[in-house]
Design a protein around this nucleic acid. Structure first.
Length: 361
DNA sequence: CGACGTGTAAC
DNA sequence: CCTTTTACACGTCG
């Protein structure tokens, strides 16, 4: 038996902006990723709860958000990842002190295994959660939501149950009750497509999924996924709280206009490569596979990749990148691209100790 | 089996 | 009208 905490910082980016500029505190705040094609092109990265009440939430186009915000006082700001990253790093260090092991899953979320230090005592775990909340508030002025469960899946879903500023405990004996009429769409790891497929089978709730004929599920989703889905539906998740090795690093950007001009696209790739190269150095890794990621005008993603000799230099392989680009257009004549990216994978870490902060910086 | 390309999901 | 980054599963091919 384990006890796992999931800590989720509330409206992280927006809260940081409110701290940085007190004059916007209490107003709807929208953090945007501007793509640069036109003054309002791009998407909403995140927003605070005031803005969410208006319907302005992550993922919607900035132009939509501005239409909603019309004749209302809504603050629009561009993302400032460096700032958010630096605060995130400090918070992750605070969390490290409270866990046996920690796993950072994104800039504003982490799992903490507290099994040993609580001796599997749920009250002790709750005390740690409260202490974490006080520490984060005291050091950074931020609030967070915490979920406590017997594994990562339950902890994650618990933290989502009440937010912002939530604290939800789902002990092993609570799991069945908590899950009973949970819609499958709300199970972590089951997204839009899977939900539709499941609904087509008459599966609506976690319970429906848990009790469904496994062979039928396997025929549709494959052996592996069928098993994982059904375990999730039962609240089972044996995956440990541990920071895995990084698998890939990529950079992607939006082109100023849709184009099939290799020169223009290649220029953009070179631009993105500078940033990617920095990251490769910082992580102290070599790579063996290099890819281009091409997103066409219908927002469909394509990729072309090649595996080469171990290296840590993008520049020396730009010839290959260009070749991949040419290959793509030979295979997709006339197709225009909206966005382009470059990715390295097949990573081999060089002999240098990585700190937790290195992972998502 | 490794390499490659696509789809799904989450942030 | 439509951002960014990462992980992982799966099918196919040689």
């Amino acid at each position: 038996m384990r006890i796992v905490l999931h800590v989720d910082l509330d409206a992280f980016y927006a809260s940081l902006e409110e701290i940085r500029n007190k004059s916007i505190k209490g107003k709807p705040v929208v953090i945007c990723v501007y793509s640069g094609r036109s003054p309002d092109s791009g998407a909403v990265s995140t927003s605070n709860y005031k803005a969410r009440e208006l319907g302005i939430k992550a993922g919607i186009p900035i132009s939509f958000a501005k239409r909603i915000a019309k004749d209302k006082e809504v603050v629009f700001l561009p993302v400032d990842m460096e700032y958010y990253r630096s605060v995130s790093d400090r918070i992750m260090e605070l969390l490290e002190e409270e866990a046996d092991t920690i796993e950072q899953v994104s800039i504003d979320e982490a799992y903490l295994d507290v099994t040993k230090r609580t001796s599997v005592n749920w009250n002790e775990a709750q005390k740690i959660a409260k202490k974490i909340k006080v520490k984060i508030k005291h050091h950074e002025g931020l609030t967070c939501s915490v979920g406590i469960g017997p594994n990562k899946l339950i902890a994650k879903m618990a933290s989502g149950h009440k937010k912002p500023k939530g604290l939800t405990v789902i002990t092993d004996t609570d799991v069945i009750n908590f899950f009973e009429k949970f819609p499958v769409s709300k199970i972590h790891g089951i997204g839009d497509k899977t939900t539709k497929s499941l609904n087509d089978l008459g599966i609506q709730t976690a319970n429906d999924l848990a009790n469904y004929n496994i062979d039928a599920l396997e025929r549709i989703f494959g052996k592996n996924k069928a098993k994982i889905f059904q375990e999730k539906a039962k609240g089972i998740d044996e995956s440990p709280v541990e920071q895995g090795e990084i698998q890939q690093i990529s950079r992607i950007g939006t082109l100023n206009e849709d184009t099939d001009n290799i020169e223009i696209i290649f220029e953009k790739i070179k631009e993105l490569s500078i940033d990617l190269q920095k990251k490769i150095k910082k992580k102290a890794v070599d790579f063996r596979t290099i890819s281009i990621i091409a997103i066409d005008t219908e927002l469909k993603t394509h990729s072309r990749s090649e595996t080469l000799q171990q290296t840590d230099l993008i520049d020396e392989n730009l010839i290959t990148v260009r070749k991949l680009l040419q290959k793509f257009f030979e295979e997709n004549p006339g197709k225009k691209l909206r966005r382009i990216g470059i990715k390295v994978s097949n990573l081999l870490k060089k002999k240098k100790q990585k700190s937790l902060g290195d992972f998502y910086s």
